[in-house]
C-alpha cells in the first residue's frame, strides 16, 4: 500500500486516493481530431515501464487533483506536486497549464472553448 504525500494534506495511505490518468495525456481538438487520434485519447496509454508523471485525486480527503512522479516498476514515489494551472492558490502560483511537447493540441481549456457564449 503506497504512502502518497498529498500537497495539501501530507502523507496518506493509498486507499484515500484515486488514480486518474497519465499526466502526458491530452485531449485532442475534437473538431480536427481524426478517428485514430480520438481513439488514441480514449483507449491507448503509454503504459510506461519506469518513472512517469500521473494525475491522482485525494478523493477521501481534500478532493484535489495533483501530480505524482512515480516509478511503475518499483512504486517509488519521487515526488508529488501541485498541478500547474490548478484553480487553487498554489496552482496559480505554479503557473498556467502547458501542453507537453509532441502533442498538437494545447491544454483542453483552449480546445473546447471555441466561442463561449455564442448562441446555439
Amino acid at each position: 500500500m503506497l504512502s502518497i504525500a498529498c500537497p495539501w494534506c501530507g502523507p496518506r495511505d493509498e486507499t484515500e486516493f484515486r488514480f486518474g490518468v497519465e499526466a502526458a495525456v491530452r485531449r485532442p481538438l475534437p473538431d480536427t481530431a481524426d478517428d485514430r487520434a480520438w481513439a488514441d485519447y480514449l483507449f491507448f496509454r503509454e503504459n510506461r515501464r519506469g518513472r512517469q508523471q500521473e494525475l491522482w485525486c485525494h478523493g477521501a480527503g481534500c478532493g484535489q487533483w495533483f501530480l505524482v512522479d512515480r516509478d511503475t516498476v518499483t512504486h517509488e514515489i519521487h515526488g508529488t506536486s501541485v498541478l500547474p494551472g490548478h484553480p487553487s492558490a498554489e496552482g496559480r502560483r505554479a503557473g498556467p497549464a502547458e501542453a507537453p511537447a509532441g502533442h498538437d493540441a494545447p491544454a483542453p481549456s483552449e480546445a473546447v472553448l471555441g466561442g463561449a457564449g455564442e448562441a446555439a
Binding site: G63, L83, G85, P87, S109, V112
Partner: peptide
C-alpha cells in the same frame, strides 16, 4: 460530483 471536480480542476481550470 467527482466528474464535475475532475473537469473543473484538470480540464478547464481557467474557468
Amino acid at each position: 460530483h467527482a466528474i464535475v471536480e475532475e473537469w473543473r480542476q484538470t480540464g478547464w481550470p481557467e474557468l
